[in-house]
Amino acid sequence: MKSLEELKAIRERMQNQVNLRESGGQTATRVVVGMATCGIASGARPVLTALSNLVQEKGLTGKVTVTQTGCIGLCQYEPIVEVMEPGKEKITYIKMTPEKAAEIVERHLIGGHPVEKYTLNSADVK
């Protein structure tokens, strides 16, 4: 069985970093995944997992928070991911997959440019 001893080591290691993060300001970008029945049934869990993992791997944890929300009433477009950057208009990505999520981390969260082809706006135009 995996023991809880390891957690103690993590605590020792992390406490300094956590203090740093807490004093690092509140201007984080929020990435929100719809996790109601509609979202989960269309594959939101792997999308959320991919986003959280990538945000951690790419060292974005201080700048980006990944959270979840309920049904926003656009069930036909699930899985939906919303990106809210301070001072910018909210971007709504639809019909997400872990692969598309990886693109959004690369190009939007890191690169700063929304991936237009996956947005709700681009779907409405068609």
């Binding site: 069985m1 995996k2 809880l4 390891e6 957690l7 103690k8 993590i10 605590r11 290691r13 992390m14 406490q15 970093q17 956590v18 959280s52 951690q56 944890t61």
Partner: peptide, 23 residues
Amino acid sequence: ILGGVPFDLPDVSAFIADYLSEN
């Protein structure tokens, strides 16, 4: 055990994942 160290921190999150899969 963690005191104020949050669960979504990479190391803690990875520990939780390992704890689940190993056990």
